[in-house]
């Protein structure tokens, strides 16, 4: 049980897919026009993530290494189809609001990332909880972003009026540009945390500064480009656009990224690096 708890904590806080790893940005921006949509999308993704992690982990000895990516995609796509049919039948309104983004869960890099870096090399029960934890972390992040956008854009949260009547809603926040602005504020805050951490001298390598840096210089365990492209190193990205400077922590992270499948111990024995003392206390209390 201890392990399950650790996995949940890891997904929700320590390696939160949106706030810490910056994965799955397309749905994060597209469906967070309201808190309810964010919650619906998050829970759908969480369900797919948990089920696909479980099945992939159960089948990990059967799936040959060379065709694992197509196999993962088929498993994930099957669960997405099941979920889509269920939503169509029981929650037609939500299905309509989320539209094409439900089938697009298939290409969400969080799911493939977890399959590759955790489920394929770990037993079923921890994998299931890893999926649940990551999914809930994603849900939490989407709901927060959705709530902020709904609050600023319509003065409501979950449809309940929060702001006083004198507040004029800033309509742009529920439209497309608002999504970019909210995410810009979020990443700026993250950069701020990273800079402060580095000033104190702590290792902040885990905090990503956005997918943009990662595709060039992938410090991201879940970056899906690696999976399709086993010899990504030889493709000359480095010569095309050389990052200005590579920090030691980033090199370490990207080395980790290239190992496939990621060895268990990189996840299991990592010291808690980014969370605050409060979180460490929480973890000890939990054990």
């Amino acid at each position: 049980m201890n392990k399950a708890g650790e996995r949940l904590y890891n997904g929700l806080i320590k390696e939160n897919p949106t706030f810490v790893l910056m994965l799955g940005m397309c749905p994060t921006l597209a469906v967070t026009t309201s808190a309810m949509n964010g919650l619906g999308m998050g829970l759908t993704t969480a369900a797919v993530l948990a089920m696909s992690n479980l099945i992939i982990s159960l089948l990990r000895k059967v799936i040959p290494g060379k065709v694992r990516i197509p196999a993962f995609i088929v498993i994930i796509a099957s669960f997405v189809t099941v979920l889509q049919l269920l939503l169509e039948a029981y929650l037609p309104d939500l299905n309509k609001a989320l539209g094409v983004y439900i089938p697009l869960i298939v290409v969400n890099c969080i799911i493939l990332g977890r399959a590759e870096s955790y489920a394929y090399s770990n037993p079923p029960i921890p994998s299931l909880f890893d999926g649940v934890g990551m999914g809930l972390g994603f849900t939490f992040a989407l709901t927060c972003i959705g709530a902020v956008r709904e609050l600023l854009g319509a003065g409501e949260v979950f449809g309940y009026r929060i702001m006083p009547d004198s507040f004029t809603p800033i309509g742009i926040f529920v439209l497309a540009p608002g999504a970019f602005f909210v995410l810009a504020a979020l990443t700026a805050f993250q950069n701020y945390l990273k800079i402060t951490k580095e000033r104190v001298g702590k290792d902040a390598g885990k905090i990503q500064s956005g997918c943009s840096e990662d595709c060039m210089n992938c410090g991201n365990k879940g970056c899906s480009r690696r999976f399709y492209d086993p010899d990504a190193e030889d493709h000359g990205w480095e010569t095309l656009e050389k990052p200005a400077e590579i920090k030691a922590s980033e090199i370490k992270a990207s080395d980790k990224c290239t190992e496939e499948p990621a060895p268990k111990k990189t996840i299991e024995t990592e010291e808690p690096v980014i969370q605050d003392l409060i979180f460490i206390d929480l973890k000890k209390g939990g054990k």
């Binding site: 540009p177 608002g178 810009a184």
Partner: peptide, 22 residues
């Protein structure tokens, strides 16, 4: 500002472009 270097600035630019495309 240092916190806005890199990604945040790109996202802000993209947001302004999105307004223009509106």
């Amino acid at each position: 500002p240092e916190s806005f270097k890199g990604m945040p600035m790109v996202l802000l630019t993209a947001g302004l472009m999105a307004i223009a495309f509106c």
